[in-house]
Amino acid sequence: MSFPAVELAQPQNSRALAMLRLVGVPGLIALVLLACIAIGGLWRLTGLVPTPYDPVALDLSSRLLPPSGLHPFGTDSLGRDVLSRVVAGAWFSLMTSLAVIAIAATIGTLTGAVAGLLGGLADEVLMRITDLFLAFPALVLAAAISATFGGGLATTALALAAVFWPWYARIARARILGLKNLDFVTAAITLGASRRYLLFVTLPPLLAPTILVQMTMDVAFVTLSLSSLSFLGLGVQSPLPEWGGMIYEALPSQPRAWWLAAFPGGAIAMTALAFNLLGDRLRDRLDPDSKSRGV
C-alpha cells in the first residue's frame, strides 16, 4: 500500500530529505501525535496546563457547547474542553500503546528466538503455549484478563501485552529458523560463539527490521484495541482523558452532541491510519521480500 509520497521540489541527497520522503505524510502525523504525547505528559507529570484549558477542569456554565472559536472541538457534558482532552489524552492512549508494544515485543521476540535457536522439545512447548494464546479472539481475551484483575490502565496494558506477544514469538521464530543455517551463523558457531552470544549479538541486527515493521504496524492495532477496551469501561478511569473512554462517555449524548465522539475517534483513526501506512512503507524499505507483493 503506498500513496504517492510528498513530492519535493528539488530532490537532494541529504539524509533528512530521504528520510522525509520515506515517512511522508504519515510520518508527519506521527510527529504531531508525538507532540501531543509530550503535551499530555507535561500536564500529567508536572501539573502545568500546556493545553488551552485544563483537561479535567469542570465548567458547568459551558456544558455541551458545539465547536466554536473559544472551544474548537466543543465542550462535553461537564463543560470540559474537548480539544484539551483529546490532546492530553494522547499521553494515556499512545504512551500506553507504546508500552504495550514494548513489553509484547520484548517477551515475544525472546520467546520466539529462544524457541527457534534451541529447537526440539523447548521449541515444541513454547510454540504450543503461543498457539494457545492465539486461539483466543484477541480483544475478548484481553477484556477477560483485564476484567478479572479489576480493570484500570495498568491492568489493561498488561492484558493487551499478554494478547500481543505471541505474534512476535511467531515472527521471531520464523526469522531465526531462516537465519540459523546461514553461513555467517555457522561461522560464528565455529568460532566458538555461545547460544547466548548468537541470541544477543549475532542475530539481533538481522531480526530487528522484521520486528520493527511489526511494532510500527502494531501501534495502529494496539491503539485500536486499547481504545476499544476503554470503550467497554476497562482502561483509564474517568475523569482522566483517554480517547476510547471519551467516546464511551459520549454515548448518552449521541447523536445530539456529535463533537463528543467525532474528535477523540478522529484522533484514534489518524493514529491507526498513520502507523498502518508508515508500517507499509517501512516494510517495503526494510523487508525486500514483500516489496513486489503489493499487499
Partner: peptide, 13 residues
C-alpha cells in the same frame, strides 16, 4: 484503521 465503534457512531450521525 477506523475504530468500528467510532465509525458506528458516525454512521448514526
Amino acid at each position: 484503521s477506523l475504530p468500528d465503534f467510532w465509525l458506528a457512531i458516525l454512521m448514526q450521525l
